[in-house]
Computed example of a mutant assay.
Amino acid sequence: MNASQRSEDPVLLVRKRGGFAGERERSCHLVPLPDGTSTALLTLCGERIDLGTAELLPAPEGMPCVACLLASPPSGG
């Protein structure tokens, strides 16, 4: 996990689009909001997903990436 990631920072839900990965590789990942200059997304678990193969999800869908969940910062509260 990025040491500077805070629970207040926005994250996106993404997975690889069908046709670019098998179903087992299409986990729902957590990605810090990108700065707009990168050609790939770096998930909280450390996986790199090229922008052209990424599918933005409006809500959790499919199998969650357990490593992303474990790497996410604790919620404030």
Results as ranks from 00 to 15, higher is better:
residue 1 M to G: 15
residue 2 N to Q: 13
residue 2 N to I: 00
residue 4 S to H: 10
residue 4 S to D: 11
residue 6 R to M: 09
residue 6 R to V: 09
residue 7 S to E: 09
residue 7 S to L: 08
residue 11 V to P: 00
residue 12 L to T: 01
residue 12 L to G: 01
residue 13 L to F: 04
residue 16 K to N: 05
residue 16 K to C: 08
residue 16 K to T: 14
residue 16 K to W: 07
residue 17 R to P: 03
residue 18 G to M: 03
residue 19 G to M: 08
residue 20 F to I: 01
residue 24 R to W: 11
residue 24 R to G: 15
residue 26 R to C: 07
residue 28 C to R: 00
residue 29 H to R: 03
residue 30 L to Q: 03
residue 31 V to C: 15
residue 31 V to I: 09
residue 31 V to Q: 02
residue 33 L to I: 00
residue 33 L to D: 08
residue 33 L to G: 01
residue 34 P to G: 06
residue 34 P to Y: 02
residue 37 T to G: 14
residue 37 T to F: 13
residue 40 A to G: 03
residue 40 A to D: 10
residue 41 L to D: 04
residue 42 L to P: 00
residue 42 L to V: 15
residue 44 L to T: 07
residue 44 L to S: 08
residue 45 C to P: 07
residue 45 C to Q: 09
residue 46 G to S: 11
residue 46 G to R: 10
residue 46 G to E: 05
residue 47 E to Y: 09
residue 48 R to H: 12
residue 49 I to E: 03
residue 49 I to N: 01
residue 49 I to A: 02
residue 49 I to F: 04
residue 49 I to P: 00
residue 50 D to V: 13
residue 50 D to G: 09
residue 51 L to W: 01
residue 52 G to D: 08
residue 53 T to G: 01
residue 54 A to L: 09
residue 55 E to I: 06
residue 55 E to K: 10
residue 56 L to W: 05
residue 57 L to T: 01
residue 58 P to E: 13
residue 58 P to R: 11
residue 58 P to F: 11
residue 59 A to L: 12
residue 60 P to W: 08
residue 60 P to C: 08
residue 62 G to F: 08
residue 63 M to F: 05
residue 64 P to C: 10
residue 65 C to V: 07
residue 65 C to F: 06
residue 66 V to M: 10
residue 68 C to L: 08
residue 69 L to N: 14
residue 73 P to G: 02
residue 73 P to D: 00
residue 74 P to A: 00
residue 76 G to D: 12
residue 76 G to M: 08
residue 77 G to I: 06
residue 77 G to D: 15
